[in-house]
Design a protein around this nucleic acid. Structure first.
Lengths: 308, 308
DNA sequence: TCTAGTTATCTCTAATTCAGATAACATCGT
DNA sequence: ACGATGTTATCTGAATTAGAGATAACTAGA
């Protein structure tokens, strides 16, 4: 309750947030101050601010609160995954990599309710650090002392064009000085940033953007010559094998991107989360291919994508 | 309360330890189990033992308990040292090094109640790790991830004999095959172990031991030819300067001993403890010399000891 | 001056905690 | 076999505490 008041900046706001009334919060803060023998807040007309002693106490209160919540989770967690699992993922990863992972996981562990939110790498890392989600797929590389990361897949981005473009040089020649339309998943997609920097560095452009929500939509539009895109090779390979699109390797280090799964190092790993990470590592390489039936054929789809 | 029951191994014992009655503890454990929806203990006629879920919960409960205690200390701790300071020290250190530190500290910070317990290095480390004391003087070297250590003094042990023994070789010649009487502070004194290993390694002995509780007692006995001892050079130097005893250097790495002050790395450092560490580092080199008046002359005593 | 925001305090009810007494059970030693 | 001694579970009434509402007092800003 003390932590809630400190974080809300006022007893009233904290009371609303705690689903109780102001008088109650006031009383209990008063009792706490009495027990410690010193004031924890300065009261003024716009709320409260911490005193020195209060500032000393706050990190302990927060840690204690987190530990209590985590203790409950750890104690009630059984060997068989169950309960709610809150995860985060990049838009791109959600569309390209998550479907086979989720279908396999949901099929095996039906007792788990998965809650997924999408965001940028920065947003997701913040959510993980703030314990709002248990883990997230983000773009690497990453080095943070409080986070544990596992590489799910390392992929090579290739330029995807309509089939009649024979090589990257053809594309560059055609695009020089002319408008380039790029097709991306959504704003904030990390591939898009890489793509735009790449084009700008080559003096290609200006750029126009077209946003599409599905992988086959993007491949279809690219195949029809509406624009170009940047996709992991394995993801686009099936389309290329069907002659729908053409792939062009780009020899730049930025074209190697890795997808990581991150979680707080000090947080409890529920069995639901542990099995999810297993699942993600096992099936991370398999892309969502519209032609592939999810469950049993995920492995076959992966082989096909690589071979093609 | 849960943690107390788990640690005591029974509800009854825990109740006594918590200054309450058994029915109360039973009730609250029952409520906790009800809240979590699973049993935490197996009940049997000799008390209780943890279930799997209980074992998961215990470390959290302990951590939470420690954090609550520490939060109180951190919040109520002011910039001016006050309250109780629980420390530990080796017997030898207590006798040789602590007096000037304690008198200086007690003189400056009169509001602090110091509680001191003595023990071996292993006992003291265990007490620090178990949070029963805030810090302790122990013998180095030490490498433990949960402990922070500061070197208080590095000293060189010398053989102390009656004045008429001219050199170590004289002593060795006289002692070979004959009984050697060594004078030590108490069983468990780390100097004693070093000394006995050293004598055994040289084939000297057999050994007889005489225990004395004070430094000047030891020096007096050695001076009277009753036996020999091993002391830090700085400690024995004043006696040697007065011609009471003779010192003999021994060129062995084991004769370098360091005294460390250790504390838990993750524990809150009260201002009382912080100032004590300052004080110990500043005055750690000064030995307790019976001729020196503690307070103001501690520095002078140190100079004299070094110079002699 | 009035309004909208804040915290402090009082009061009454409901919930919880506490301590004691008792019951039920197992273990050990005679 | 039986009692002594230990254990936990349960019931009960008193004491304590938490909870919610109403009101007061205060401040900043319009």
């Amino acid at each position: 309750m003390f932590a809630a008041v400190a974080e809300a900046g006022g007893i009233n706001k904290a009371a609303r947030h705690l689903n109780t009334v102001q008088s109650n919060v006031t009383q209990r803060i008063r009792l706490l101050e009495q027990e410690l023998g010193l004031p924890l807040f300065h009261r003024h007309s716009r709320g409260v601010t911490l005193t020195g002693a209060g500032a000393e106490l706050l990190p302990y209160a927060q840690k204690i609160g987190h530990l209590i919540a985590e203790a409950k989770r750890a104690a009630t967690d059984g060997p068989v995954p169950a309960g709610r699992l809150c995860l985060g993922s990049l838009e791109t990863t959600t569309a390209l990599r998550l479907p086979p992972i989720l279908t396999a996981y949901a099929g095996t562990y039906g007792e788990v309710d998965i809650e997924l939110r999408t965001g940028t790498t920065a947003e997701l890392l913040d959510a993980v650090l703030g314990r709002r989600i248990e883990g997230a797929f983000v773009a690497g590389p990453l080095d943070h002392p409080e986070l544990a990361a596992e590489t799910i897949v390392t992929e090579r981005l290739v330029l995807v064009t309509e089939p009649k473009i024979a090589s990257f040089d053809h594309f560059a020649a055609a695009a020089r000085g002319r408008e380039v339309k790029i097709i991306v998943f959504r704003a904030g997609c990390s591939y898009r940033e890489i793509f735009e920097r790449f084009l700008a560095g080559r003096g290609l452009g200006p750029i126009r953007r077209l946003e599409l929500g599905t992988l086959d939509g993007i491949i279809g539009c690219v195949g029809a010559g509406i624009g170009v895109t940047l996709l992991p090779r394995a993801v686009a390979a099936a389309g290329a094998a069907r002659g729908q699109i053409a792939l062009h390797e780009i020899a730049m280090p930025e074209m190697r991107v890795e997808t990581l799964f991150v979680r707080r190092r000090d947080a409890f790993v529920s069995s639901a989360l542990a099995r999810f990470i297993d699942c993600a590592k096992a099936r991370g390489g398999a892309a969502a291919d519209p032609a592939a039936v999810p469950m049993a054929t995920a492995r076959a789809a992966k082989r096909a994508a690589r071979g093609g």
